[in-house]
Amino acid sequence: MLHSNAILASLSTSDTAALRPHLKATHLPQNTVLYETGDTIKAVYFPMSAVVSLVVSLASGEMTEAAMVGRDGAVGLASALDGKIAMCRAVVQLGGDAMVCDPVAFRGTALQSESLISTVMRHEQTLLAQAQQSTACMANHEIDARLCRWLLRARDLSESDNLPFTQEFLAEMLGVQRTSVTTVARTLQEAGMVKYARGKIEILNVDGLREGACECYETIKQQYGQLLGRPHQ
């Protein structure tokens, strides 16, 4: 079961044996808030089929996604580096399964293994790179290209063409007005790339979305391939 998460699957036999007793299977329902900004991180999550958004919230109530984490990464891994305080909100955007580990146990295991602590550091570096890429994307790319990129990454992590997202949620994640998402979603539907019903998006043309997506989709994919020391596919 551990092979369903790329981080866990990449561990050495000894690291896997040391960590396995501390891992527990859990199900994360959609919209579950794993932690809020400023909370103490009380669990490390390794998504298997769940997808989690790391979100920055403003005093005005507006929210924008900084990074998306799924089976290619982990949530709360910085606790192994003594990063016990959450710097953003973590919310489950797509419900699914995950392995969960107590952060104290994980840190203790990581500090006994140079290879595991190296994996943690590379993951956090990659997560930061994704957040930086998202910032550049928001500042320089059009909404249609950003939405294509976002849908493709959600599809990759969930391994499903059916995504249960409302336009309100998409607007929050992209940091735009709902009317903008409505316009772009209608355009994509008319082009035969997606089929949109209330609260549900079905991806019909993956190649079309890839052509419409900005460069950030491939960049982030490459970064996660490098995280595990192998080229992306």
Rank of each mutant, 00 (worst) to 15 (best):
A110C: 02
S134N: 11
A25R: 11
F165H: 06
L28Y: 15
E172M: 13
Q222H: 15
T32Q: 14
L152G: 09
D82N: 07
D156T: 14
A197M: 06
G76L: 09
A110I: 02
H22W: 13
E190Y: 05
V176R: 14
D82E: 13
L28N: 09
L34F: 09
E218I: 10
M173V: 07
L128D: 06
E36F: 04
A191F: 04
G229E: 02
A213V: 02
R198A: 09
Q222Y: 12
G192D: 05
G83Y: 05
I7N: 03
T119S: 07
L174D: 03
V91D: 12
F169E: 13
A191W: 07
G199Y: 04
A67S: 07
R198W: 12
T179I: 14
K195L: 01
V206G: 05
A136I: 12
F169A: 13
P29G: 00
Q226R: 15
G108W: 07
L227Y: 07
V184T: 05
C101F: 06
L209G: 11
E159H: 04
M87A: 12
E172D: 09
M173E: 02
H22V: 11
G96E: 03
R146G: 06
N162T: 15
N5A: 08
A67N: 03
K42N: 05
T13F: 05
A136E: 14
C148E: 01
P231Q: 10
M63V: 12
D72R: 11
A25K: 10
Q226D: 15
V56W: 14
H232A: 15
R153W: 01
L163K: 08
L128S: 06
T16M: 04
C88G: 00
G95D: 09
L81R: 08
